[in-house]
Design a protein around this nucleic acid. Structure first.
Lengths: 269, 269
DNA sequence: CGCCGGGTTGATTTCAGTCAAGCAACGTGG
DNA sequence: CCACGTTGCTTGACTGAAATCAACCCGGCG
């Protein structure tokens, strides 16, 4: 929650190339530009400068609550570094994970609109760096600058598309298939064989996919037969193409396509 | 799909009170204003007039496809009368219901953004009347008028909130509980005892809740013990308050709170 | 060393999907 | 008017998926 403003430079223009990293063991001064956030990619320079004046960067330790469901919307927040989970808390008290934000993603879930409150709570997973712009200031600029308004609308469109996909997945895919798609979404594009580290622990992945961790563990075990190995926190995918094909079989039962022929040897089971 | 433009007057201003309903058996001429759509509630007169010039009203018979998933976005569509279902079609061919739009709701799911395509297909349930504005024209106006851009953003915010709620429900509630909430959402506010007609058939409700119709039928049967009776298409709720209370018991097992002990016994750990 | 937290695995229960039959409500055509 | 098929809804018996309960493993770390 501490605000280390002095360590960062917020700009509006293209990222400055002056990189003052000199291996000193104090925090490395780093230039950060609002332009780096996808949300602001197409916003005019002037508006961005105005926003930059109001922006505050904060470094948060693990488990910091950024805002709470039901709070009035104080700031527009984006994640610069680390991960932030968004969750909903039912009256009964149990929490439901809605999404995890990373990279340069914005948490404008509650975007604007007068007197709106936060629909979710936001909490950091691991240490994270975030940037905040006061909501009132943001809303005013959005009303004045059509470009910013359009950018917000576009951002919202993307977010809606993602949510729609998630609803489709929850309604029509079983746990194994959802996991397979999740793995595929993590594979670096263009590589047929790959190895990477899971971005967060399996409990969170389970919550993201809407299953219990035991179920996730079993789903991983099932994928092991299809060329997806797990080494504690690392994932090795033998063949992305093969996994894509297997997705169709994971979905509907069809346990045995039964192509009897001597072709592929691993469906003999 | 036929366009009965001549039967309708599209305006931008407040709804004209001249009501030409005279019981003739030809279609009743009716004035319709864009202002009636919540999306445009706060948009300035001038922009609205420009939109109205481009708007086209269409009456559709049941089962009309308005647009298809993957199509380029040709128009912004709103529902004036009747219901429109939005669904996703997987490569395999099976359809997943995403949402149902009614009243004056907009189907701007794919709002704007250059070269975007429709994320869902839209199809009328029963006969419906819709209004269309060419997407290019709409996008240009949205870019020029900050008010319209803000309105779109606000609309998107509402939609996101609804989607988030649906994801929460799918992840954390069982079929009975989801149905109970759905019923409650249909109860006219303020009334303790009520009776109303389901807006569409039970197959659609099942799909909306993410269950099979057989499961929905059993869920209705279970609610019968809690003061919710179904008479074919009508619903009678004996006590809204009681239903709200029952929701807590429907969620988690806890069939018997059993407070027998003199202390709460679960904090002994 | 012992004690976690995160992860796996197994046994069992609960929930929802599947398959199948039956029924009530219509609309149509004889 | 009734026989008829259709469509929407319900019910039952069964299967399968995922949650639950519980034990255990294993890699830090005080």
């Amino acid at each position: 929650m501490r605000s280390d403003l002095n360590d960062l430079t917020i700009g509006a223009g293209p990222r400055k190339t002056r990189s003052t990293r000199r291996g000193d063991r104090l925090k490395i001064a780093e230039a950060f530009s609002l332009r780096d956030l996808p949300l602001f990619a197409s916003v005019d320079e002037e508006t961005l400068s105005a926003l930059a004046l109001e922006a505050k960067v904060e470094t948060c330790e693990s488990g910091t609550t950024i805002f709470r469901q039901g709070d009035p919307i104080a700031s527009i927040v984006a994640v610069i570094k680390g991960y932030v989970k968004l969750l909903r808390i039912a009256p009964g008290g149990d929490e439901t994970l809605i999404a995890i934000r990373a990279n340069g993603e914005t948490i404008v879930d509650p975007v604007m609109g007068p007197e709106e409150t936060c629909g979710v709570s936001a909490e950091t997973i691991g240490p994270a760096t975030i940037i905040k712009v006061p909501a009132a200031r943001f809303a005013r600029l959005a009303r004045e600058s059509a470009g910013l308004g359009a950018a917000v609308a576009l951002d919202a469109t993307r977010r809606i598309a993602a949510l729609v996909s998630e609803i489709e997945a929850l309604k029509s895919q079983n746990a194994d298939l959802r996991l397979a798609h999740f793995i595929l979404s993590l594979c670096p594009p263009g590589e047929e064989q790959c190895r990477f580290r899971l971005p967060y622990d399996k409990r969170l992945i389970a919550a993201l996919l809407g299953v219990k961790q035991e179920t996730l563990s079993r789903a991983f075990a099932k994928l092991r037969e299809h060329g997806v190995r797990t080494e504690t926190r690392d994932i090795v995918v033998d063949s992305v193409a093969r996994l894509v094909v297997q997705c169709e079989h994971l979905g509907r039962a069809t346990p045995l396509p039964e192509r009897t022929g001597r072709l592929t040897r691993d469906d003999a089971a």
